[in-house]
Design a protein around this nucleic acid. Structure first.
Lengths: 212, 212
DNA sequence: CGATGGTTTAACTGACTGGTTAGTTTAGGA
DNA sequence: TCCTAAACTAACCAGTCAGTTAAACCATCG
């Protein structure tokens, strides 16, 4: 009812802070990140972090929850946009990749969060994760009902997709340093999109030759 | 030529330090880890870290390289122990899992290292990684020659296996907090071994039903 | 015995950390 | 125009950090 100019500005500052926190936490980890640097990148005084958001842990929690929300929204839209099981399943990693393209620090942040074991993860963040997993499960179930998919464990499948994608997104940054010791892999040249598409193709049709 | 008692003791202290460093880096990340805590767990004075190994970055590099070496050795042994392509490929994630069972902090450490982008990774560590990837590639190539496997990108396949495994190993620690919001997944009850076996089965035979 | 050199220790330093607070500026309604 | 509350700042605090140093320990060997 009252989107006064002040309130708008306040929300914008808060958003800037959370975005900056995402970058810094992704680059340095929770322990390595400094609130001073977060304030610097957000272009605000350090005390404003505490005024608008809270202490370092709150900053972290807000950041992670916001990013999980983005992923959830993207995956939900992708699933809704397709009906054919195969295309629908393919769309899930693509939604991840598209979100990552907009927020390049996201995979780093997520990997760090998972590695940390989530001591600073609010329940809301867990709920977002569970929602996304449910979307994968529903897609797999729908595909199985329509005789397009075999019945596979949705929990394992989802973890595999997400884990592999997040890992790949981060591993890509090491590509340059591998140049001397490995033949440059074809699929890596196209970036994360290419890796993702190659992966989903392998998982859909399997590695083993089809038995007669 | 001179495994004097003193030199032996020195090597043992060094090993204790590197083991302790692995634990602490895994739990807290590079930035969050304190050299004081590493020394405490190793049961040595803080200054001994600098005497036997070096500064914090050196400690980290040595730790990561040592653990990658363990994985490399385990995977190499697993590949050598099997000849049938399917069994050989299955053995690779199992080797990972077995190594993780002996060193529970390993997946955490690896995930954090990948997330960090490896600024403290010595070339030796990269070389170990490349060697392991080559083992996967060789297994896939052998399987394809023997008409047991389709030709798939070995780079993507390897990253997918390793990424998914490391991610799952870490995600398992969140299992308890998901209990209220998700039906407890069957495969998760058996721990990482079960998840790994389920995953490899999915990837080998694919999600899609086989076309006639 | 005493000298030697690798090993270990406690004490210390200066830089930096997350977090607070007293006080100032700005916007908006009466 | 004045007043109030929100937004903001600079300075500061107490504690922690990685890293150093000088002195002491101790096994070995002449």
């Amino acid at each position: 009812m009252k989107p006064t100019r002040a309130a708008q500005h306040s929300a914008e500052v808060r958003a800037r802070i959370i975005e900056a926190a995402g970058e810094v936490f992704a680059e340095c980890g929770f322990g390595g990140a400094g609130v001073h640097e977060i304030a610097r990148r957000a272009g605000v005084n350090k005390a404003m972090l505490y005024y608008h958001v809270g202490d370092k842990a709150a900053l972290f929690g807000e950041t992670v929850t916001a990013n999980l929300g983005r992923i959830h929204a993207a995956v939900a839209a992708a699933v809704a946009a397709h009906t054919a099981p195969r295309e629908r399943l393919k769309a899930i990693p693509r939604a991840f990749v598209a979100t990552v393209r907009e927020h390049p620090y996201l995979p780093q942040l997520m990997l760090r969060e998972i590695a940390a074991g989530g001591p600073n993860l609010p329940a809301a963040a867990l709920a977002e994760m569970a929602e996304v997993m449910r979307l994968t499960a529903a897609t797999l179930d729908d595909g199985a009902r329509r005789r397009a998919f075999r019945r596979v464990d949705p929990f394992v499948t989802h973890l595999m997709f997400v884990g592999a994608l997040m890992f790949m997104a981060n591993a890509l940054r090491l590509k340059g340093r591998f140049a001397n010791m490995l033949p440059i892999p074809a699929a890596a040249a196209g970036g994360l999109e290419s890796l993702s598409d190659t992966m989903i193709a392998i998982v859909l049709d399997g590695i083993a030759v089809k038995k007669a």
